[in-house]
């Protein structure tokens, strides 16, 4: 009589062991570094040697990519549609410019200060986007960005107003590595910042925090009912994303040694949204792929039709949406192995 019971307990324990090791395997696989990730960074590094004459456009791509990865945290992970992400980019750019002009022109210090300033603004404004529908969030983010743009325009004594902020030049990185004429050292520096930021975003995405973010995006009511403090998570995410956008703005200032009021313009917020539309949201590398695609396309179009490239970008977006972004960005899923648990709905 006791034998079968014994046996079933044994099998139960075995089954449990099988389930558990399967669960561990699945969780591990979720976070493995994918081959395409390694390829991207190796490729980026290779361009330094292979395309020395293209440093300027590569720099542009790196900055836009960083900006887009930052927006992806907000949009692709937390599910907040923002039309005003340029507020943080612009504040970062101006902070870096002012810091270089009045305090020190060492870029890394400027970068950190700019990130901190943008992060503060992000934290302060995050409370405004916690409630409400997509429309109110859209309006609030847009309104904040417009107010920032107006502030920069009005405070001409500080920002140079419509003429922009100039009169500073950037010192060598850590006082050691100068920005060279071809932009090579600069590009390596930008690449390092982009790499580190993406790394941080990646850790974040695969952490328990990241797990709760996508749950919030998918179903905020249910997320709260498994114990996720939705508001707190959104505040943190928005702040982190703002810091990264501030970094991107600072990098632009460091490239050009000039801050134009254009850094806060609406089209910057729109462009970065379009970058994610092209690259896909919710898996981090959409910002990088999108930035490459968008910049190359814009570059090619503005050679063909310098005044009217905007028309073709617009047409591309309309087609992209009509055909279905999800369908067009599905190739991402097939990049070698996928990013399970990170592919997301674009809802």
């Amino acid at each position: 009589m006791s034998l079968p019971v014994q046996e079933s307990v044994q099998t139960g324990a075995e089954e449990q062991h099988v389930d558990q090791s399967r669960a561990h395997r699945l969780m591990q696989r979720r976070t493995t570094v994918r081959s395409f990730e390694i390829l991207i960074w190796l490729g980026a590094l290779a361009t330094v040697y292979l395309l020395p004459s293209k440093m300027l456009i590569l720099t542009e791509i790196a900055i836009l990519a960083l900006f887009a990865v930052s927006l992806d945290l907000v949009l692709g992970f937390a599910g907040i549609v923002s039309l005003g992400h340029a507020a943080f980019f612009g504040l970062g750019a101006y902070t870096a410019g002012l810091f270089a002009r009045y305090v020190t022109a060492e870029p890394v210090a400027g970068l950190l200060v700019a990130g901190a300033a943008a992060g503060l603004l992000g934290y302060a404004t995050s409370f405004l986007i916690l409630r409400g529908s997509d429309l109110t969030r859209l309006m609030t983010t847009l309104g904040i960005a417009l107010m920032m743009a107006e502030a920069a325009n009005q405070m001409a004594w500080l920002t140079g107003g419509a003429d922009g902020l100039s009169g500073f030049s950037i010192d060598p990185i850590f006082g050691l590595v100068p920005f060279d004429l071809w932009g090579r050292n600069g590009f390596i520096y930008y690449l390092v910042v982009l790499f580190l930021s993406t790394l941080v975003a990646r850790r974040l995405a695969f952490s328990p925090f990241g797990l709760s973010l996508k749950a919030i995006k998918s179903n905020p009511v249910r997320a709260a009912l498994v114990g996720v403090p939705v508001r707190r998570r959104l505040i943190t995410t928005y702040t982190v994303a703002a810091v990264m956008a501030g970094f991107a703005g600072a990098l632009l200032t460091h490239t050009t040694s000039f801050v134009s009021p254009d850094v806060l313009a609406f089209h910057r917020s729109a462009d970065v949204l379009l970058v994610l539309a092209i690259g896909g949201t919710g898996y981090l590398y959409g910002g990088i792929f999108g930035a490459i695609g968008f910049t190359l396309l814009k570059d090619a179009l503005s050679v063909v039709t310098p005044q009217y490239w905007m028309f073709w970008i617009g047409l591309l977006l309309v087609i992209l949406v009509l055909v279905g972004r999800a369908r067009l960005t599905r190739w991402v899923d097939d990049l070698g192995e996928r990013l399970p648990g990170l592919r997301g709905t674009n809802r």
Partner: peptide, 9 residues
Amino acid sequence: GSRLWAVVG
């Protein structure tokens, strides 16, 4: 749930 660094696994 608020841990930002270590992966879920």
